[in-house]
Every structure is written in structure tokens, then in C-alpha cells.
Design a protein around this nucleic acid. Structure first.
Length: 496
RNA sequence: GCCAAGGUGGCAGAGUUCGGCCUAACGCAGCGGCCUGCAGAGCCGCCCAUCGCCGGUUCAAAUCCGGCCCUUGGCUCCA
């Protein structure tokens, strides 16, 4: 059973073969740190995270890099709102990104390089491109000459001629061809460059622009262009040829197209063997984006729904499809996650109970365990089909519930198999917090003791037949977020 | 206009690579039943799909081919 992935280069699902049979170089285009991260970013991160986890499961040594674009006109446009300078704004948002990545339970990448730390490498790359005849200098700026690179347009399936036909010839300026793009931009940032990105309440554009960073270069003072950074950083931290390059669907053109051109022109090597593109998150048939202002931030979503629900939501749609964010889709995710979490909990409780024995054998349960061990790897190997993987775990949940409901004594080995499958696939591969305890601080212990005290009182009311009083107590606990469930063995509860 | 990705039940969303086990998964919503003092959770069952439209290939098509319609994304900052 081998991994197959949909490669944007070919437009087809292909068998995955890394350059080196036991390691994978994985690069993900991170975000520009000019706005709070929203759920659309989280979708990309979580899917890359699961790819990383699955490649680990398959036994590869994964080298994973994600960049931060901390030099950009949009960041300058925020000066005065969240910081006093371009660098300061970027630092603030990088901090937000790191906080959100932690709360999303992402496996760490090996490196999170920033543009501001890689200007020397970028300059080297630009010089190489000039030396090799793929780039030219004009008035202190450097442009990539798309007519020199034969494969330009291959990734996005366009030709330079087609692209030129769309461009406005007046816009060409100092470029030789309309599609040429900047590798290095002379001087700093002009107020006009940031005008369209500004919010109300920003600092005066002039003073914001004064904080824009510039660097010395062979062509004079200036700033790196947007596209070079990914080429320079991925080559610095991984290699000239990557196994898998992942990014949002909206980056295919021009960003990724330009990355391919720069990198391959400079090295003569294929830049990435597999290009994977994550579909965009939409609300009511409109993509979620910072510029449209229609986003839910990662922080808000986690605070409102919790990690498990957010991850379940993001993984409930295959990475390459677009996904819909709405109250309804979140509610569905909440249900799915709760079902899984309860199923896992029931398996653990049953296995640990005195009624679990070695003499009990439930074929249905054991078959379900075998099935999930086949179904999840098959789903994940089929282009990381996380939706199918979740469905397989839900089938296991159903088998666990049937077993616990239908028997007075439990099949210990069957349950243990189920628990291991939940942990291996649900927790380790999909990153779901199935076993999350709510922390073991003193406050939590006190809360537990108090809830148990209330439940004891409630039980005696029930025994006395005072159901109204008992129901009131349950309702009041529910109002505090404490979920109470009655069963034959007495009530169980869960803290919020 | 050009390029790309899509159009599957009330919603959401797999399956299309290599046509048949798809009489279309998992789930949400809805309905009925079991369990329960009640509720919830869970279990069992049911309901809702001629898989955008038209034509073609085939013993057989959601899956392949042709045409058309529509949606979204990219072509300008965007994961």
C-alpha cells in the first residue's frame, strides 16, 4: 500500500516517491504577518500537520519547513495599529501565529525561517539569476525575465503569450516584459504602495513608510521581492529539490509559478517534485480572507469551539477540496468529535472496569478493530483523505458502543485494540485531543469534588423520588457547562 | 476574456486515478422503535439522490468521450 497524492504539476493523482527512500523534504508557504491568522490559514496548517504526521507513520524522516513573510507592504500598512515599525508589527503577528499554532496542536516544523533573516541568501540567489542571464537590473531594481525560462507557466497551465495578452501594456514600466516580476525592489516603501492596504486608525502613511526595512545590495538600497524569499529559504533549509511543496490554492499563480521559475533557473534542478494545493475555506460561496474581512480568527474559533471540534471541522473535508465554514458545518463537526471522544472514553472505562475479562470475545468488536486498521491507512494513503479516516474511526466508535451496550462483561483484548486504534490514528495521526484531561490543577480537582458532592445530593433526591429537584440540579449544572449523564452504574459527568 | 477547480439527497461531504461489490460512505437535520422516572448519550430501523444538462462509447457509467449551462478561485495583496 503506497501513498498517492494529487500533483498540481501533472493535474493527476500519482504514486509518491521521495528522492531518498527514507526521508521527505516538506515545505509549506506560510503567511504574511500582517493580520491575525484566520481559520483559512488554520486549514492549511492542520492539513500540512496531518501530512507530516502521516509521513511519520509511514516511517519517513520528515524535514518540514514553514516560512514567515515578515517583510511586506501590507505589514507597513499596519504600522501604528499594532506596532511602531514594520519589524515591530511583524513580531506582534508572528507571536500570534505561534500562539495559534500551539493551540491547534501542530507538530513543530524543523524551522520557521523569516525573510528578514535571509536577505543575504536572497541577494545571492538574485545574483546567480543575473549571472545566468535570467534576470536584469533596472534603476536599482532587479526583475526576472520570464521569456528566458521556457517552462514559465507550466504549473498554472498558462503560456507567457496568454499571460501577456491579459496584461496592460501601460503597466510595464521599466520591465522588459509585462509578466516579468521583481526579485529586488529599489528603495523603500512609498505611501502609494500601502494605500490600498490601510485600515482606519493607522499612522500617517509617510511615517509608516519610514519604518520600512531596507538592505544594502549590489544594486543599492532596497527590499526583496515577494516570490524570491520562498526559493531562497527552502533551498537554505532543505535542498535544491523538494519532495513536497504545499500551499494554498490561491498561490498557484503567480507566487508558486514564480518560485519554480527562480529556483529552477538558478539551479537547473527541478524545484519540487510534488506540488499540493490546499483548497480555500469559504463562507457562503466566498473565500475567507484577510482582505475581505469575512474571517473568523483561529483564536476565536478555538475559544468558542475547542481544539477537537476545530480540527475535526478542518479535517472533515479533504485538503484539496474547498470547504464551507458556517454554523451548521461547525455544529456537525462538534457532533462528530463528541461522538469520537465519548466512544474513546467508553472504551477506556469499559476496559478498565472489573467487568472486563479475558474470557469474553466479541467478534464484531474485533472485526471492527481489524477494519479500522485497514481503512485508515487506505484512506490516508489515498491523497490524505482525512474525511474517510474520520469515517473509519466513527465506525469503530459504533462497534465500541454496541459492545458496551450489549454485554455485561467486556472483551478486554478487543477494547484494548480499539483504544490503541483511537490513539494511533485519532490522537497521533489526526491530532485529535480524544484523551485530553482538563488539566490537573488544584482548581480542577476542587471543581470535581464539588460536582461530585452535588451529584451525591441529587442521587439521594432521586432515590427519594424527588425527580423535580433532581432535574433542577442537573439543569443548573448544565447551565454551568457541566454535562451530566445518568446510567445504570450511576451518573457520569464532564467538566466544561 | 484567459487559466484552473468544481456541480452528488433538506444540509454537509466521500467516492471519479484502474467503468461493475455505488441498489452511492461517514455525519447533521427529520421520522419510528429500544433503553430511561424524565432528559441526554447509545443502539436498531426508516425517510431524502434518475450523481448539473444533452448526446455518445460499453454487456455495464457518478466514474470514459464530445457539446452546453452554472458556480468558485486565480489573472492585483492573500493559505
Amino acid at each position: 500500500m503506497t501513498l498517492r497524492v494529487t500533483n498540481t504539476l501533472s493535474g493527476e493523482k500519482e504514486g509518491f516517491e521521495p528522492r531518498d527512500s527514507d526521508s521527505v523534504l516538506l515545505y509549506y508557504c506560510g503567511l504574511t504577518t500582517s493580520d491575525p491568522p484566520h481559520l483559512g490559514h488554520a486549514r492549511g496548517w492542520v492539513h500540512v500537520d496531518v501530512m507530516h504526521r502521516w509521513l511519520d507513520w509511514l516511517g519517513y524522516d520528515v524535514h518540514h519547513v514553514e516560512n514567515f513573510t515578515d517583510v511586506n507592504e501590507k505589514i507597513v500598512a499596519r504600522v501604528g495599529e499594532v506596532g511602531d515599525s514594520e519589524a515591530d508589527v511583524a513580531r506582534n503577528y508572528i507571536q500570534d501565529v505561534i500562539r495559534d499554532m500551539r493551540s491547534l496542536n501542530l507538530k513543530r516544523a524543523d524551522v520557521y525561517p523569516r525573510v528578514s533573516e535571509h536577505v543575504p541568501e536572497i541577494i545571492d540567489l538574485v545574483e546567480t539569476l543575473i549571472d545566468r542571464g535570467y534576470a536584469y537590473e533596472a534603476n536599482g531594481s532587479v526583475y526576472f525575465d520570464v521569456t528566458e525560462f521556457e517552462k514559465y507557466g507550466d504549473l498554472s497551465n498558462q503560456t507567457v503569450e496568454e499571460l501577456d495578452a491579459q496584461g496592460d501594456p501601460e503597466e510595464r514600466g521599466e520591465k522588459r516584459h509585462p509578466q516579468d516580476f521583481a526579485l529586488w525592489k529599489a528603495d523603500g516603501v512609498a505611501p502609494a504602495d500601502i494605500a490600498e492596504h490601510r485600515h482606519d486608525g493607522a499612522a500617517p502613511a509617510e511615517s509608516a513608510c519610514e519604518t520600512a526595512q531596507t538592505w544594502d545590495s549590489p544594486w543599492g538600497e532596497g527590499r526583496p521581492g515577494w516570490h524570491v524569499e520562498c526559493s531562497a529559504m527552502s533551498m537554505t533549509h532543505l535542498d535544491e529539490t523538494l519532495d513536497i511543496h504545499v500551499g494554498g490554492q490561491d498561490l498557484v499563480f503567480p507566487h508558486h509559478e514564480n518560485e519554480v521559475a527562480q529556483s529552477e533557473a538558478a539551479t537547473g534542478q527541478q524545484f519540487a517534485n510534488y506540488w499540493l494545493h490546499v483548497g480555500l475555506l469559504e463562507t457562503k460561496a466566498e473565500k475567507m480572507s484577510s482582505s475581505l474581512g469575512n474571517f473568523a480568527t483561529v483564536e476565536e474559533a478555538i475559544a468558542e469551539h475547542g481544539l477537537g471540534v476545530v480540527r475535526t471541522f478542518l479535517l472533515s473535508t479533504a485538503y484539496h477540496s474547498r470547504a464551507t465554514y458556517s454554523e451548521g458545518t461547525m455544529a456537525e463537526a462538534a457532533d462528530r468529535f463528541e461522538t469520537l471522544r465519548r466512544g474513546y472514553e467508553r472504551a477506556v472505562e469499559a476496559a478498565d472496569s472489573v467487568d472486563a475479562g479475558t474470557k469474553v470475545e466479541d467478534d464484531d468488536l474485533r472485526e471492527a478493530v481489524e477494519a479500522v486498521r485497514e481503512d485508515v491507512p487506505r484512506a490516508m494513503n489515498d491523497d490524505f483523505n482525512t474525511r474517510e479516516a474520520l469515517a473509519a474511526l466513527l465506525e469503530l466508535t459504533n462497534a465500541v458502543n454496541r459492545h458496551v451496550d450489549g454485554h455485561d462483561t467486556y472483551d478486554y483484548r478487543g477494547l484494548r485494540g480499539a483504544i490503541e486504534a483511537f490513539e494511533e490514528f485519532g490522537v497521533d495521526v489526526l491530532g485529535l485531543p480524544l484523551a485530553e484531561d482538563e488539566g490537573d490543577g488544584g482548581d480542577v480537582r476542587l471543581a470535581e469534588d464539588l460536582v461530585e458532592l452535588v451529584l451525591d445530593v441529587r442521587e439521594s433526591e432521586r432515590e427519594a423520588g424527588n425527580y423535580e429537584r433532581a432535574d433542577d440540579l442537573r439543569d443548573e449544572l448544565a447551565a454551568l457547562g457541566v454535562e451530566v449523564q445518568d446510567s445504570d452504574d450511576g451518573p457520569t459527568y464532564r467538566l466544561p
